[in-house]
């Protein structure tokens, strides 16, 4: 007998009582989504920048290798999207656009179409995410309503930079992935 049928058979033989799925009620959300969202992002150790600040930093050479497929940053992008993500091993900055943000925790939803390559937001030394300030929801229940039944092969909430506290619970930003998350509300 295959393990599949063995496992399923064992479960079926228990004839467990079926219990109904509960309905999730509607919960109140923050009356000021933008304020809550920014508070959450900052709590997650993200940073809130203006578009001018980002442009300034790029101009001043803080980020030598920049990738962006966004029309508004096309002129700053000096990297083409490679076929192999390994070629982005020394990418300094990626600029992408998020679909929407969640006020209660600062999470920003992204799908394949927003990333180019799935490795982009992780392999870049710094990550800037643009987000339309009108695209904010209150909590995760609303977030999944908005995600709906999208069929993207990969979907991702990013809520801050790569971080760890594995050494004596001291928070360190930049464990493996992006050392900063720069949020730009547009």
């Amino acid at each position: 007998m295959s393990s599949r049928s063995e496992i399923l058979g064992k479960i079926k033989s228990l004839k467990l009582e079926e219990k109904p799925l509960p309905e999730t009620p509607v919960f109140a959300v923050s009356p000021n989504l933008e304020e809550s969202f920014i508070y959450s992002i900052l709590s997650n150790k993200g940073e809130v920048w203006t578009i001018q600040e980002l442009e300034g930093k790029i101009h001043s050479g803080t980020f030598p290798k920049v990738f962006s497929a966004l029309p508004e940053f096309k002129s700053f992008s000096n990297q083409e999207l490679p076929a192999d993500p390994h070629d982005f091993a020394d990418l300094d900055l990626a600029i992408i656009r998020g679909q929407f943000g969640v006020a209660e925790n600062g999470a920003i939803w992204l799908e394949d179409v927003d990333l180019g390559l799935r490795a982009v937001p992780f392999i870049a030394e710094h990550l800037a995410i643009l987000l339309d300030r009108k695209q904010l929801v209150g909590n995760m229940h609303q977030a999944y309503q908005k995600v709906g039944m999208t069929e993207s092969g990969f979907g991702l909430f990013i809520a801050g930079p790569s971080k760890t506290a594995d050494i004596e619970q001291s928070l360190v930003i930049g464990a493996h992935g992006a050392k900063s998350l720069l949020l730009i509300l547009t």
Partner: peptide, 17 residues
């Protein structure tokens, strides 16, 4: 787990690239 509102990365793997 840690008193944070969400982990900084929450990845949904649906199909391989």
């Amino acid at each position: 787990a840690t008193g944070q509102s969400i982990t900084n990365y929450t990845s949904h793997f649906r199909s391989p690239s």
